[in-house]
Simulated scan of single mutants.
Amino acid sequence: MDDAVKQPNDRALRNGLVGVGVVLIFDGSGGMKRVEPGVDHAAAPANGFKLIVGNSKAPEFKIWLRDELGEFNSGLITAPTSRSRCTVMDDKALIVLRVVRPGAAPQDVGRQFLTVWIESNRVIIASELNILDFLGLSKVDQPHHAPVTPADLIARLALRATDRLEPLIEMLGERLDGIEETLITHSTEKAQDNLEQLRRTLISFRRLVWPQRDALSTLEIEDLSFFSDRDRLRLRDAAMRTARIGDELQALSERAVLVHEEIIDDRAEQMNKAMLLLAAVTVVFSPLTLITGLLGMNVSGIPLADHGAAFWFVCILLVLIGGGIAMWMRKLRWF
């Protein structure tokens, strides 16, 4: 049996998913170039910045982070997390964003996090996600449309994360439409099951979107010296777009509540109809039961006790009384 260790493919190496990562230098005018990691490379231009991307699980990248940023800061970057957040330390910032898996179903969005360390002329991204493909930077011979500032890079990350959410929000809206159509056909039980699953999914989406909006808003309002007005505008746009997704989720949640109330009303109406039918049957048969009970007493003096056709006479009487009560209830629109 071949015990050779499986070697990573060229694509994983090229995109920094294994090893010490990948280094890109942006000139601040929309251009960029790639520099091999592990060697002394040129510093970023005065108006540009440097991007280092690595896998947060790769041992080589963790060692590089510890040597570069220290034990405490490197631990913040690689520590497991469950929510988006933004932390500012001196003139540096740490922001955690959550991205859904490509092609994920609404009920299983996954937990792909990317942690970004931001300085005036350097950005470090630690994530198991293929960041270069995610941002469209996997090819070096790009047109001059690369990020021009660290804030521009963060805004693009947030917008790409939102782009992955929008199709899932549309799918949730279509599912809610399907539940409403199911209610029209009075399939209440099936609609209730689907609605419960949809509401759980909406809750998980809100847990994803709202902290991300708050993290972007926090980064925008923090007093970082290297953020320009244009940078803050870009971050505000990203936060507003994330907030719009949150508003759509809130609207879907409110619709789901209305559908749930409609299901409850439908069930209450069905129960009321059943109770009305039972009440009508009770009203019809109560006097008949009284009459038959009186005639069935084991005492002397019962009328028609010795008459041969007494049974049929009583039956006809009961039918007439029951029919009369039913007609009277029908006239009152009880059923």
Rank of each mutant, 00 (worst) to 15 (best):
D163W: 09
R207V: 00
H186Q: 15
A155W: 06
E128R: 13
D163E: 14
V100S: 02
G173M: 06
N121R: 15
P102V: 01
L129F: 01
I124D: 06
I131V: 15
P211M: 03
F226L: 04
A146Y: 13
D108C: 02
A158R: 07
K92S: 12
T218V: 08
Q192K: 14
L233G: 13
L159I: 15
R101Q: 13
R156M: 12
L235M: 09
F227Y: 08
E196K: 00
R232I: 02
L159V: 15
L114F: 11
L216M: 02
S217E: 14
L172D: 07
E166P: 01
L153T: 08
L195N: 02
I203F: 13
L176A: 11
W210L: 05
V116W: 04
R207I: 00
E196H: 10
M171N: 12
D108N: 10
S127R: 00
F226D: 01
A158E: 05
A158D: 05
A93M: 03
E181K: 14
D229T: 10
A215H: 07
R111H: 14
K92A: 09
P106F: 01
D141C: 08
F134S: 02
E128D: 14
R230I: 12
H145I: 13
L94V: 09
R206V: 00
P106W: 02
A104H: 12
E222I: 01
V109M: 11
E170P: 02
Q107S: 15
I131D: 04
T185G: 02
A161K: 07
L129S: 03
L168M: 14
